[in-house]
Design a protein around this nucleic acid. Sequence first.
RNA 1: GCGGGUGUAGCUCAGUUGGUUAGAGUAUCGGCCUGUCACGCCGAGGGUCGCGGGUUCAAGUCCCGUCACUCGCGCCA
Length: 598
Amino acid sequence: MTIHAYRTHTCAALGASNVGEAIRLSGWVHRKRDHGGVLFVDLRDHYGITQIVADSDSSALAVLEGLRLESVITIDGEVKARGQGTVNPNLPTGAIEVFAREIKVLSRAEELPMPVAGEQEYPEDIRLRYRFLDLRRETLHANIVKRTRIISDMRRRMEGAGFTEYSTPILTASSPEGARDFLVPSRIHPGKFYALPQAPQQYKQLLMVAGFDRYFQIAPCFRDEDPRADRLPGEFYQLDLEMSFVTQEEVWDTMEPVMAGVFESFADGKPVTPAGQFRRIPHAQSMLDYGSDKPDLRNPLLIRDVSAHFTSSGFGLFEKIVGGGGVVRAIPAPGTAEKSRKFFDDMNEWARAEGHAGLGYVTRKGGEFGGPIAKNHGEEGMIALYDALGLGPNDGCFFAAGKEGQAAKLAGHARTRVAEQLDLIDKDRFDLCWIVDFPFYEWDEDAKKVEFSHNPFSMPQGGMEALCNQDPLTINAYQYDLVCNGFEIASGSIRNENPETMVKAFEITGLTQADVEDRFGGLYRAFQYGAPPHGGMAAGVDRVVMLLCGAQNLREITLFPMNQKAEDLLMGAPSVAENKQLRELHVRVIEPPKTRTA
RNA sequence: GCGGGUGUAGCUCAGUUGGUUAGAGUAUCGGCCUGUCACGCCGAGGGUCGCGGGUUCAAGUCCCGUCACUCGCGCCA
């Protein structure tokens, strides 16, 4: 009989039914408990943990005593039932242990820079430098497995919905709109560069023109922008999809079961908005009610415009703001009668620290109003205001005032913060909604001109007629985002596949037909030869995984992330190129000027 | 590019109002221990208090600069 060189079972496989068998296990020394004459080892592999025991009858005892944690060993031994009182109910294999007859050390571990067992926090740079150790740890290891399963589930559901996965190029052309590109110098064409795709946007539209009808891809995307906790530096993945001959409603109806299904499968029983019940909130409504285009619907607070209450008010500041075309937005703070003055003042301090002029407030306790706004606005006015807001005798209220855009944004942030402070958000839920009817254009204050507010390839609502006859800043697009718990998890649109409309849309931002042909030549040309109406969206895979893993940070769900300065501390990227490589690429490095001469 | 937070032993942290030789847990090394499962007990080694400068009789502690990590703003069609 031949026996496998390394193992007959995994470290999660053995149970009471195996008692008496001679087996072989391989894995890492997770923990060691040395009692002198008897020694226990928790042997770990990808699948689980099995307790190994050795005593003075075993040749393995001396070897194990001298072995550091995280060394890799093979154990030959025999499965034994654990005695009464020594069963470990916390371990799936806790009914048995393996008595070691022989041990083979496959790989000795040096002293560890960070322990693997346990879930303490460690400095980010050490975790990244020793990522192979970090990835052995339970939570991160499980997150990565979950990530892969989620992506696999997405593929299965997309194929089930009639989509086919196609790969698109990684070396492509720089896209003049959008984020900063990663460039790759061409050896064959001196002075020319490829760019890594920020998204397969133009390729997927070309696939529609080529008649493939329903495309999807788990697509790597590259953008050279500074990171955030929910935005990795450099590269990330999108569930990218596109459909021909569809209206936006069909995109939503198609994707709701996919997205709701993925969430339900991995939400560990937490409620998820069911497919068919995603609210479709117009962008303007969202800005008014939530002060954000990615509202957290778990937050029960609603913002209200109360400008009309301050057109003539004893509170001069608000009267002046409203008189000058500004707005006042109210953020309810229910049940705050017993909150200290510090609670309200701290909110104001916070708003100032965020760069706003401040956040006004009214307190109310047993029907009695308090605070400077209430005092100046007068009790009669306050009662009218509270009636309009539906607030009670023990509810406070915050006020964000100023130019509409700024006031809405501040109100949105305040809404989130108030709800957090008052613990009003149900954390064990996934609330999904569409934000629809995004404005097509916006006013660029720096450049003093009209700019695309999101995707220039989107179809403006009203088409050519709207572009010709309507104030551009009032035109909406067939453009939508999918939002979950305050995170934008997908964005999409019906595309503009008509060349004349496309040129007109760009003209309004100051570009000519020649510019369009020059910058988007491939796509523009494709639209001359029979292009189907089409649309789609792209979901941020990393963000979805982060939400489903309950992680606060994308590094917790990514195998080999870069740090905040876009460096890979394990592989040492980016690195200096050799002169020979640079010569071949016709590239010369210019050292940045020294910033300081001390 | 800008702003906030953090930085003390390999790791997690404590260190009072500026005052003696900077401590604990864990890890490492040595010793003891036959039923643990975060095993336990005894002992030892281990420190450029991120780095540089300044104030002071005296700095881990106060000030300035700088670096690393991080969160946010700008940026992200």
